[in-house]
Design a protein around this nucleic acid. Sequence first.
RNA 1: UCCCCAGUAGCUCAGUCGGUAGAGCAGGUGGCUGUUAACCACCGGGUCCGUGGUUCGAGUCCGCGCUGGGGAGCCA
Length: 472
Amino acid sequence: MTIMNNRPLTGKSRRTSIKAALAQERETPGVHLGGWVRTVRGGKELTFLELNDGSCFASLQVVVEENSPAANDIARIGTGACIEVTGDLVISPASGQRWELKAAEICLLGGTDADYPLQKKRHSLEFLRTIAHLRPRSNTFGAVFRVRNALSFAVHRFFQEQGFLYVQTPIITANDCEGAGEMFRVTTLDPKTPPTKDGEIVWGEDFFGEKTGLTVSGQLQAELFATAFSDVYTFGPTFRAENSNTSRHVAEFWMIEPEMAFADLGDNCRLAENFFRYMVVHALENCAEDLKFFNDRIEKGLIDKLEQLAGAEFKIVTYTEAVALLQKSGQKFSYAVEWGLDLQSEHERWLTEKIIGGPVFVIDYPAQIKAFYMRRNEDGHTVAAMDMLVPRVGEIIGGSQREERREFLEARMREVGISPESLSWYLDIRRWGSCPHAGFGLGFERLLMYVTGMENIRDVIPFPRTPGNARF
RNA sequence: UCCCCAGUAGCUCAGUCGGUAGAGCAGGUGGCUGUUAACCACCGGGUCCGUGGUUCGAGUCCGCGCUGGGGAGCCA
C-alpha cells in the first residue's frame, strides 16, 4: 500500500491475536496484543490480567511487575477495560496455563467503571439478553458466536463441495400466499393518509404497485433456479410476523433452503441427513474448545451426543407409522394422537426423544395438514412431505418433494383458495420443462441450538427480534 | 394470542406467622512474593417493578398493569 498524503498512517499497529499467541511453539519477545480484560488479580509485587480478544475461548494471562513501566496504568484497569499490551511471551512458571505475557508496556484504550454490567461471575442468560450489546464479551456468547461463524462457513462449504449454486432470493416479495406465516408489510405509503377507495387501501399506488412484504421463504424462487441450475441453495434472512412467544421462534432468522431438480423425497432426506451430519462433524473438528465449554456448562454429554450422531444412520418413519408408534407407546398426551391430525410438539418430542432416541424424519403426511405445493402421493391422500425432528429442539427441518404436475398443482391451489393467476410464474415452471424436484428449509438458529446445547433461540442469534423487542 | 411462574442493592439471591432490609460477588480503601471467577480486613450502596386496595402496620395479602421466564398454538 502506498500512502499518498502526509497522514501519519504507519500500518504497524496490528496486533497478534491471542489465538495465535497461545499457539506459539517458542518464547517470543516483543509481542503486541489488544483485548478486553476479563479479570484482574492484584498482589503487592505482581498483577495478573486475563485478556480476551474473542479470537478463541481462552484468555491470555498478562503479568505486570510492580516496577515495570507497564505498572503505571494498572490501578485504573478493571474488568471490561480495553487495553493494548506489548511484552514478552514466555512459558508461565505457575501451573494453570502454558503461556503468559510479561508486560513491558500497557496502554489503556477504554476504561470501565463500577456500573459495567458484565462481571467476572455467572450471569443468567435472561440478564445477558438485556445487554445484548455486551454479551458477546462473555464466555458463553463468545463461544456461541464463534460456532455460529464456523457453521455459517460450513453451510457454504457443504453445498459448494456438492456443486450447488448459491442463489440470493429476494427479501422483498409480493407473495403472501406461501402458507408459511404472517408477513411484515413493506410500504412507502404514508400511514396517516394512505390512498383509499371505498375504505380500502389502494396498494396499486404503493412503491411496487402491489402489496409487498418481507420474505417468509425463498423456496418458490429457489424452485425457479433449480429448474435452470439443477441444484441450488439459499442462505439468508427470513421474516415471520407471527406473535410467537417461545424459545424456538424469532421474527427474523436465517434459513437454509436447498432445492434439487431430478430428486424425490428420498434424495431430499439423504441430503438433509448428509448436511446435518456435515455440520456436526465440522463443529467437532473446528470448534473443540467452544464445544468443551458447552459440554461442561450448558448441556452435559453434548460432545457424546454429537459424536454419536456423526456415526449414526437417521431413522425414517411415515406419518402413519409415527401415529401408530405414539398410540401404542402407552404415554398419556394432552392432545389426542389420531390419523389426520397434526402432530403436536409433545408428540414430536416423545417420538424423537423417547421412541427413536435421536434425529428422525417423519414423511408422507396427510395432504390436508400440509402446504399446497407438496407432491401428492399415489395413495391420493398423503403428500411427499418430510419433517426432521431432533431431541430438545423439535422440528429443525421441513421439506417436501414439490408437485411438478401442473394439473395437480393448479387443482390444489384452487382447493386452498390461492388464485393460479397470482403465481403464474410458479405454474409456468410446470408448463415448460417441468421436472421432479425436492427441497427443504432448515432453521440455522435451530441447528445452532442443537450443536451448542443452548435452549433458547434468542441466545444463538446476535440481536434477536421477537414480539415487542427490536432493541440493539 | 392463551395457560402457569417470577420481579428485593450494579449482578446472583435470602427475607419465617404481616412488625419497618440481608449475604455473596461487583465498586472504594488498606494488606498480601506467582495469582487462577485469588485471598484477608474495613467502607459506601435500596422507588423491595408500577399502581390501587385490605390493615394500627405490606417486600410479604388482594385487584389491575408492565417486564421477564416456562409451556401451548403458528413454524424453521
